[in-house]
Design a binder for these strands. Structure first.
Length: 208
DNA sequence: ACACTGATAATCT
DNA sequence: GATTATCAGTGTA
């Protein structure tokens, strides 16, 4: 069983990811996420039904959905709907708390520690995630990628606003982040090259 | 600090 | 053939 992705977002913030490969282990603290639902969410991969790529979104909660975008990047999600419903939470940004040398080796373009996992494709690169990890169980102790609860996050420490880079459903505030972290990615409205502007809903506080 | 643009290929229509 | 839940580099301030 699972829960609604939007409800899962504030729970995942502050959570800890551990990714192990033959090179070692990288540990990261999640500071920014976005919810993607199913048939009612035009911005979701699941909106137009099940395909070979997105099949994992219909699978059990607590598994990893990894997909390939823009010809050279991967993005990772935590599946959370379960029970035949599609839904997932995109991992947008994190702070590397252990294994910084390995993460830096995988991210040669990053000039500062905060840039290592600031952005969804940067995060997957820093943790070494690829399509090979599509479908792995994040809750199994022997899994190459694991997710566990982190330090408690106060409800007042979470902010929310519109999702980044989505043209459809640009109005729903389904992006959540920890404003105290400088690893949160810069706001950019959906679509390319269009009129940029200040974050319109930037700082709606989330009440407990 | 912000704005703009080219790269690049799996996936879907 | 079009689209894309992006990034890095370059230019301007």
């Amino acid at each position: 069983m699972g829960i609604d992705p939007v409800a899962a977002c504030p729970v995942l913030l502050g959570g800890v990811l551990e990714a192990t490969s033959t090179d070692g282990t990288v540990t990261a603290r999640i500071v920014e996420v976005e919810a993607y639902r199913g048939a009612d969410d035009p911005a979701s991969h699941a909106y137009r039904g099940r395909t070979a790529r997105n099949a994992v979104m219909w699978g059990p909660a607590g598994h990893l959905y990894v997909y390939f975008v823009y010809g050279m990047h991967f993005c990772a999600n935590v599946v959370c709907a379960g029970d035949g419903q599609a839904g997932a939470v995109l991992l947008r940004a994190a702070e590397i708390t252990d294994g910084q040398d390995l993460a830096a080796a995988r991210r040669p373009a990053a000039r500062t520690a905060r840039d290592l996992a600031r952005g969804p494709a940067r995060l997957t690169a820093a943790l070494g995630l690829t399509r090979e990890h599509d479908g792995v169980d994040l809750t199994a102790p022997d899994s190459p990628v694991r997710l566990r609860a982190g330090e408690q996050v106060e409800p007042g420490e979470v902010e929310r606003g519109p999702r980044v880079g989505v043209a459809a459903a640009g109005d729903v505030p389904w992006r959540f982040w920890l404003p105290g972290s400088r690893a949160v990615s810069r706001y950019r409205p959906g679509g390319r090259g269009g009129a940029n502007g200040p974050d319109p809903v930037a700082t709606s506080r989330l009440e407990g």
